[in-house]
Every structure is written in structure tokens, then in C-alpha cells.
Design a binder for these strands. Sequence first.
DNA 1: AGCACCATGTAAGTGGTTACATGATTCC
DNA 2: GGAATCATGTAACCACTTACATGGTGCT
Lengths: 187, 187
Amino acid sequence: MRKRKSRTKYAILGFLAGKPRSGYDLKKAVEKSVGFFWSESYGQIYPILSRLVEDGMAVRLDKDKSTGRNRQQYAITPSGLEEVQNWIKLTADYQSHRNEMLLKLFFGNLTDLDTSLRHLRDYRNHQQQLKQTFEGFKSTLPQSGSPQHTQQIFFLATLNYGIALTEASIKWVDDTTHLLNGKSNDN
Amino acid sequence: MRKRKSRTKYAILGFLAGKPRSGYDLKKAVEKSVGFFWSESYGQIYPILSRLVEDGMAVRLDKDKSTGRNRQQYAITPSGLEEVQNWIKLTADYQSHRNEMLLKLFFGNLTDLDTSLRHLRDYRNHQQQLKQTFEGFKSTLPQSGSPQHTQQIFFLATLNYGIALTEASIKWVDDTTHLLNGKSNDN
DNA sequence: AGCACCATGTAAGTGGTTACATGATTCC
DNA sequence: GGAATCATGTAACCACTTACATGGTGCT
């Protein structure tokens, strides 16, 4: 008995629970909302949408003739909704992620100091840019107390995660730069 | 022209650069040092070790007869060392990682508040445990100024990363728990 | 004797990306 | 007319994990 660990199915169902969408919409929606901690490719989305229909968890909607575009919308079914909800209640697994930058830094004794410092600098720039993206998103969110508040609060929570972690990364880069430069700060 | 993105090869070479090791040793060494941000499986290690020998980047050492154990040690060659060093100098790529916990939190409107709060609690416990592991490692490191200092400083840097990020995660959990409970803290 | 661990290796499977094919629509 | 984007789909590939097979060694 081998358990499937693909969470693409649940990501799709979760987005369909919001409103009916096409495969193309799903990809865009993932990118624009959870893009910084999740991604999906068409190579996964389209086959899985078909499988969801087979399994009765989604249905194909009639094509909208008002637009000439050849798009196929999918809607979630009660059985599909139940499936995501059950998945959400299961404890998430915390798989550790590979971090190539850290590996290169770890091998710092195989290279010159400038290279390690450059990796830190590049990483800092990247984190800084990410942080600004999150803050940009956050500034577009409606104020607390507004009608959409309950739906948006979870988005806000994930944005806060992004901001908190990028800030910590930036601080770590600065500390580590000093550490490598020999300016000990009693760390 | 398709470029290979396997970094297992470089991880192996990086460890062999320290000292000759067997496939078994490599797995253990990875787990015990960079285990929290890197992993390798035997299914990768053994075939790649053979390939490295074919490519002249590693050599098989004569078996040590002093121990009866049937182990094959591998040593890096100058060409192998050059290969890792070149790789280290290349800019790391920052692929975004999937975070299942955040996805479940993002879909919080599909479940009850208690489930979301439980995810936060579980995540906090996990991060707390990780943090303690890093701190444990850190406490075994020799003091700065000691002979091994230059080799260990990069290990220290990665441990500091682990500590900084877990601390930030824990703080975020606490803030987010308050946020979801409606105790706004002007976030 | 029996168990835990050392040690190597491989086949099959998994989850996912990439590259490509195809064609319609919108906008300049 | 032509570029950008919308839109769907699939075949090939990729990096990696899991499960399994096999046998040696050290210790009690």
C-alpha cells in the first residue's frame, strides 16, 4: 500500500472551491496568490483536471459562448469539496528543502572569501526584492473590518510569513557578512 | 542543448574534497552536517560515484584490509576539485519551495478556525524542535580563534541561518495566532 | 543464535518540469 | 499584417525516493 503524495490535486480543488476556473486560470491564480510558496505547471494541471472530472470531484461547465475564446471552465462538486476539506485537516508534512546557496556557503573553504561574500550579497538582493513584492501585495489588501476581511485574512497571514522570513534572511546575511569578515559581534 | 541541474554530483564532490569517503559515509556526513537543508539518497549516491570515477573526477581507493568491512572509499581528483570549485562560483539559483502548511493555511476559509490554529501550533512545535537541534550543534563547535576556526565558520554560518529562520517562524506563528483570534496588534 | 548496524547496489516508481505543437483572439 | 497573449494539451525527460535484495560484522 503506497500512498500518493501529490498535493497538486488539493491545490487545484482549493482554488476551484473559490470559483470555477479553467486550467489557464488556475495557473495564473496560483502564481498571483501563492506563487512564492507554491507552483503548478500545465503538465500537471490539465491531466489532473481530467482525473478530477472522472472521479466526480469536478465538472466541466458549458462553454461560455459570449467570448469567442476556447476555454473550458471547471467547477468543484460537493465530493470534491469534501476531499479538500479532509486534506486540509490532516497534519501538514514539513519536508526540508534543499537550499543551494547554503550548500555553496557550507563549502566556503573550497573557494575564496569573495565568492562566499558574493553569494551572500546576491541572496540578500533576492530576499529584498521578494520582501518588496510581499509588501506590495499587502498594501493592496482591503483594510481590516471590511467585508472581505475573513477571506483575505489567510492571504495576509501567508504574506506576513513571507515578510517575516525575508526580513530574517536579510538580517542573517548582514550578520554573516560581518562574521566572515572577522568582525565578531559575540555571536 | 539541455543543461543538467542535478546538484547531487557537486554535493558529493564537496564532501569528498574534505576527505575520502565511501557511499555510506557520504550519506551519513550529509545527514549530520547539512541535513536540515540538504539530503541525498543511496539511489543517487552510488550511481553518481561510479559516474564520477568514469569521468575522472574521483578514484576508488584500495580497500583497507585492516577492517574486514567491505567498504569502498572514494577520493576526489584534481579534476573533480576543479569541477566543484567552478560550480561554487556560479550564482546559486533560488527556487521557491513548496510549503504545504502555508497552502493549508491559505485555504483557511474552507475549514474551521481550530484547524488553522492547530496547523500553526504544530508548525511552531516543529520549528522549536529544529531550533534546539541547531543550537545543540552550535554548542559543540570549537570556540572562535581555535585552529579549526576557518573550516567551522561556514558550518556556523549555516547553523545561524537555521536558528534565525526558525526564530522568525516561531514569532510569525505567535503573531498569526493572535491575528486569527482577532486580537489585532496593528499589523 | 540472533539482532543491530554496516555497506553496496538496483529496479521501479513518483511527482514534477520543459519543450513543443497547435490554434484562436485582441490590440496596435 | 504582426506581435502579444489566451488557451489546451501531451511526450519526453528529469532528479530523486522508495523498496528491495544481498551479505558482512560486532556484540551480547
